[in-house]
Design a protein around this nucleic acid. Structure first.
Lengths: 349, 349
DNA sequence: CTGAAAGCGCTAACAA
DNA sequence: TTGTTAGCGCTTTCAG
């Protein structure tokens, strides 16, 4: 039926059509109408058809508050970002929303802004709305205190994780990601690898640095110098590259803790006349296309597959809602995206 | 009361406490309990206190499905992003969510992914959930066909606008923003201004270019060359800067349609030995800090104040829900953020 | 195969 | 001041 028709009908009623309206129009009782529309009970096909017709006629949409009231289920989940919504949240939310939408669930968005008060306020709101489950996300992979204890609905932490190991968390396998980056460099024959990354207080920076060191150690190799902790910025990348070039140790590859840092490094190397990837191979982390593609040359990087992570978290939540919780930390694998900054130089003649 | 206590009490009931539980515990009828908790009717203060105590004891949270069922209001709104959630959506959503949260409304997040089918699906879902209103956003400022006609709830378009002028849209005043940029350059004494921007098919690119040309014309000036339409990328910025430098016309300023383009321009200028801002003043658009701060020198840029825009849209929606719609296109002013790329060079001696 | 009625949790009239 | 009751829209027994 056309939107116009729906509108006319609704205006005649001056309110959304209810199942009683449908029943009346079809000449049956509400009970019958309900069964007809939900394919339950045993009804004459004729009756069923008549009811469906009436429903279409009126543009009937079941009132979900009523549905909720007797089923107890709302088919909604809350998504709380504990710190401000940021760049990482986009693919994450997309994945969550996608997986839940497919399960016919709607998502409440709650931005707690790093404020514990707001966080608790949202939690109460969500519980009062009787959401079927809650997803907690954050801007960092740091573990955080559980958002509540013994909550009446399942909770899944995505990207961020809970300090309680019994909670269900889905986090990127940053260790695995870093190892893939190093593996790749080793396969290219690079053995003198430096590591420039973000602040040491950041969980991600530490984990990635540790994994890098450990992977090299497995090959009997050491990092060129110590991991260089600084900031997640291009400026730090440039500065650190300068320091590195000023030091006596030679290096043939730099693995960076973020794409921004890597891009700063690329700029500094180029300014100093060092060629990427010929003299120095360069790998970033995050696979943030804005950076990787603008970098000269295009940057090889580790992708945390956040959309997939979001989908996984959502699916774990759905199964938990259906009574099969999967407690513990779940690792979401990272993927290495190879680009020109580590391309093997080809001799054309 | 402690979370543990709530939990114990709830486990005893093995379901969320209802107002009947509260009433029973307080030794009153449900009607009385309702009045007590909502501050309505006239009750003895003693009774009120007793009920409140019981409610606290049980960790009572009113079931919002029940509230919805008799008030008809859900205190929820839907936010549909017609195209994929992107960088611009973050501040927008933050603003929307903030303003609505303050009005005690919760936000349903719907990502339609540029898919009209998904869009209509979400629309139906939202209507079936009886949201009090809908906010429609998008990734571009382009006008789009209304999401529906004669919908039973108010709709506000944010960032994107509706082709129907009677719909309520809140859009950034890109013309005003571009004029501010040009004003700033003129005030610095720059008169030979070039404009490098995104694809001509993009509304934003055209609007910003037109405004630039028009503003210069008011001063009896012309753009250096024609507006250079290309892509929203650094690569295009670099390329366009090259073209510009190769042309015979001299220029002392470049106003770019995006920060990415401007950054590309900055890199190309530096590589060619032209100093920013001394030889060429540079202004971007979007005030995307990742770009403006990483740019060398830091980039002056036009900020569309998207968070404010989101808040405005949300407030317009709230007033519309309360029966006072504000149809038409509402312009949200842009703000110029001045940084080093247009700083007046200071002679130190 | 269909209808009547109870009940989900809450509020608001109306009675007591 | 408090209790009782009807009703919001729907599903689900249980009778007919």
């Amino acid at each position: 039926m056309s939107p116009r028709k729906i509108e006319e009908t609704e205006r005649a009623l001056s309110r959304p059509a209810t199942i009683s309206d449908v029943a009346r129009l079809a000449g049956v009782s509400v009970g019958t109408a309900s069964k007809a529309l939900n394919g339950r009970g045993s009804l004459r096909e004729e009756t069923r058809r008549r009811v469906r017709l009436a429903a279409d006629e009126l543009g009937f949409q079941p009132n979900s508050a009523a549905l909720t009231l007797n089923s107890g289920r709302t088919y909604t989940v809350g998504m709380i970002t504990t710190d401000t919504i940021g760049r990482f949240s986009i693919p994450l939310m997309t994945g969550v929303e996608d997986a839940l939408g497919a399960g016919r669930m709607s998502v409440f968005l709650c931005d707690a802004r790093d404020d514990p008060i707001r966080e608790q306020y949202y939690l109460r709101t969500l519980l009062s709305r009787r959401v079927d489950g809650i997803i907690v996300t954050g801007r960092r992979t740091e573990a955080r205190a559980p958002i509540g204890t013994d909550l009446p609905v399942p909770v899944v932490y995505a990207f961020i994780s809970s300090t309680d190991p019994h909670d269900c968390s889905v986090v990127p396998d940053e260790t695995g990601g870093a190892r893939k980056a190093v593996d790749h460099l080793l396969a290219l024959g690079r053995t003198r690898i430096a590591h420039i990354t973000g602040p040491e207080r950041h969980h991600s920076a530490r984990v990635r640095a540790d994994a890098t060191t450990a992977r090299l150690a497995e090959e009997g190799l050491g990092l060129v110098g110590a991991p260089m902790f600084g900031e997640w910025s291009e400026a730090w990348g440039r500065q650190a590259a300068g320091i590195l070039m000023g030091a006596p140790d030679r290096f043939d590859a730099v693995f960076c803790g973020s794409d921004q840092i890597a891009r700063g490094v690329a700029d500094a190397l180029r300014a100093a006349g060092r060629r990427v990837p010929d003299d120095v191979a360069l790998v970033g982390f995050d696979n943030w296309e804005v950076m990787t593609l603008a970098c000269q040359p295009a940057l090889t990087s580790v992708d945390m597959e956040l959309e997939h992570l979001g989908r996984t978290a959502a699916n774990l939540l759905l199964t938990a809602i259906n009574g099969e919780p999967a407690p513990g930390r779940h690792l979401n694998p990272c993927r290495l995206v190879v680009r020109d900054s580590t391309a093997v130089p080809v001799d054309l003649d």
